[in-house]
Simulated assay, not measured.
Amino acid sequence: MIKETIEEIVDRTLNSWVENEANQLPCDIEEAMLAPDQPDEEWKFWLPVKSTVTDTELQELEAETGFVFPEDFKKFLKHKHFYELQISEISFCPHPINVWRASLREMMLDTYPREFLFDKGYIPFALYSDWGLLCFDTHHHNAVVRWDHEDAETFEYQYQDFYELLTEISKV
């Protein structure tokens, strides 16, 4: 059985969003990601674009946060920019061109009080339905855990790594 790559999973999902016109938001869209024809003045269509994220930028963010991103997550960040990426019940942190670092920094450090997650070694990177967040568990080789926002002490193991998360949720 041939395994799909991170890039193939992301591309398939984002292509579906564009084909089904789910790629629109009621906000300002970065010019490089703005679709050419805009039928509405309030809701804007965005297009996924090739990522401009560099190894240097990732290293700078890692130095700033003190967290070294898993290699499979770096590959994800270096593939495409998008405003929304939802696969199954998982909504990934927005990754727009030019402001992706601020978006990821906000998800990691400001979504919930730092003492609940980041300061305990749990690095948020996606929303999980209306339950809470998916986080990297720095205590267990960056396995993916689900944090329930209604019980700040509950971290439930979900996947051994980011790649396993993507491949499993894309099957649904």
Rank of each mutant, 00 (worst) to 15 (best):
R101S: 10
F162N: 03
F45K: 07
V145P: 07
V145Y: 10
E4W: 09
Y163L: 15
H149R: 01
E60W: 05
H139I: 00
N15T: 08
K120S: 09
Y122D: 07
Q86W: 06
K78T: 11
L109P: 02
D119T: 02
A63D: 15
E150A: 01
V99W: 11
I6M: 02
F73T: 02
W147F: 11
D11A: 12
H140M: 05
Y157W: 01
P36T: 03
A35P: 13
V49F: 13
A35M: 10
E60V: 11
I29V: 15
Y122H: 11
M1H: 00
S51F: 08
E41M: 04
G132Y: 06
W43A: 04
S170I: 05
T111W: 10
L25I: 13
E64N: 08
S170A: 10
I169V: 12
L77W: 10
W17G: 06
N142H: 15
E115R: 02
K80D: 14
D37G: 04
N98I: 06
F76N: 02
F155L: 04
K3Y: 01
K74V: 11
Q86S: 15
P36W: 08
T56A: 12
A102I: 04
E156Q: 04
F73R: 05
Q59K: 15
I97R: 12
C93V: 08
Y159V: 00
K171V: 07
P70T: 04
I29K: 06
E60F: 01
L104A: 05
H79K: 07
R146F: 12
E150M: 06
E21T: 05
D137Y: 01
T167A: 12
S129M: 05
H140G: 00
P70I: 04
D130Q: 01
S129C: 04
L47S: 10
T56F: 05
L134W: 06
S88I: 00
V68T: 14
L14W: 12
M33E: 15
I87C: 08
R105M: 14
Q158W: 07
V10F: 13
E19R: 08
N20G: 01
S103E: 15
E106T: 10
N98E: 15
S103G: 09
F155I: 02
D72K: 03
A63G: 06
